[in-house]
Design a protein around this nucleic acid. Structure first.
Length: 115
RNA sequence: AAAGCAGGAGGAACAGUCGCGCUUUAAAUGAAUAUUUAAAGUGAGGAAAGUCCGAGCUCCCCAGAAUCGAGGCGCCCGGUAACACCGGGGCGGAGUGAUCCGACGGACAGUGCCACAGAAACUAUACCGCCCGCUUUGGCGGGUAAGGGUGAAAUCGUGGUGUAAGAGACCACGGCUGGCGACAGUAAUGCCGUCAGCGGGUAAACCCCGCCUGGAGCAAGGUCAAAUAGGGGAAGAGGGGCUGAUUCGUCCCGUUAUUAUUCCCGGGUGGACCGCUGGAGCCGGUGGGUAAUCACCGGUCGAGAUAAAUGACUGUUGGUCGCCUUCGGCGAUGCACAGAACUCGGCUUAUAAUUCUGCUUUCAAU
RNA sequence: GGCGGUAUCGUCUAGUGGUUAGGACAGGUGGUUCUCAGCCAUCAAGCCGGGGUUCGAUCCCCCGUACCGCUA
């Protein structure tokens, strides 16, 4: 169980080229609080991306942490491997963690069904 | 007690579980850089913010001495690595007061500007008025700047002498400016005496005087270096097939300044590493100083990310709000402003509850 | 992260300390027309916010806000 819920930094998307490709080519799934972009790949990789329009630095940091925590907890429910981008919208501001967590869980189940 | 002034503190705490970054150690894998796992340690602020000043550091021009230009600063003394910052003092202004505010050199170096109104806005002048003369009784000429009026600002104020009427024209008292001298003070300055004078304002208008400043910024700058394009230099006669295989043999292609091929130099994209955190550091004590702060002694190490680590959940306590209301209980709310990005010293701006110290005014009581 | 710049009616813009803050487009009203367009007349609407200097600030200075560039 210990190894199941880990989410080290090496799994986060870092390369500018990779990210641009994913956002351009990936399939989009709109959720309640965020948009999910999916592209099948050998290895699981994720990223949370926010623009300055979303809010102040504190709000952006908080959203990023909440979404990363949600990905960490729900990763075991995902059957497939691929690249994953989460684009939170303004409506996600000031939301409770369990609301975001539930939304991410729903989207992962939808991914399992539809791809 | 009420109202207020000044300076602070505070920036929820503890425990547990699951995670993330960094450091160290150990183990496994591996030729190695490393990767993975485990354990331990450690992990946002008083403003980390704005990027407004001052520095360190790096590169560039160059060798910062002077001049010119541009920009900044501007009462005095002290503090500091430095500052536009800080402390103390002076002067001016606001307030009953505690206290607060001040870009606070020069308008006699020169130039410009001062709308409207007003006679006149800066060197000349007179609208009403006052006085004298003349008069055709409508005014005209002259004198005057007291009074009225305009304006943000109008030639020092009051009283008198004087006069046709008046005026610093003269006198007394007072105010202001400048020079000189005495005293107090390191000084700014204050105060007294004396002499000269009393025609503005504006320098956050140009400017003058004194002082300071070379430019850019860690995405600075340096090291390594896949790939790709092209450049320079050197070597250079061979390369491929047939054969189990080397020599050999045979076939095809290329061949002497070239080309194929190889190597080196250079280049520097994706990327990696250094810069990268121990410093004008922090805490305590003693001493000097009104203070800012300095000296000495002792202790201490407290983030280092790079699509960028500090999060989630649970419980207890503390705030805050609401309800029941006697102690108290129940419920709600994760609870101000806000997130390190090379590092310091300041300034400015944003900040919820809560809370401490000193002082002022008014009222009341003793 | 660092370094610069801009802000004027709804939109695009003039405006070097005293302006009724000017113009164009858009908008409203009236007229012309059988009606619309066009034309004519006319109206409304603005200096990003807060301080300071000045008699007086869109303009000069300071602080903030928003937006836009440059830089590997």
């Amino acid at each position: 169980m210990a190894g199941k819920n880990r989410l080290p930094r090496s799994l986060s998307l870092k390369s500018r080229v990779e990210i641009a490709g994913l956002l351009k080519e990936g399939r989009r799934f709109p959720g309640n609080y965020f948009t999910l972009v999916w592209m099948p790949a050998e290895e699981f990789k994720y990223g949370v991306f926010l623009s300055k329009q979303t809010g102040s630095a504190v709000e952006r940091n908080r959203l990023k942490r909440l979404f990363r925590e949600a990905v960490r907890l729900n990763r075991s429910h995902l059957d497939k491997t691929g690249k994953l981008a989460l684009l939170p919208g303004k409506q996600a501001n000031n939301k409770e963690f369990n609301e975001i967590n539930a939304d991410v869980g729903r989207m992962f189940e939808r991914l399992n069904r539809e791809t």
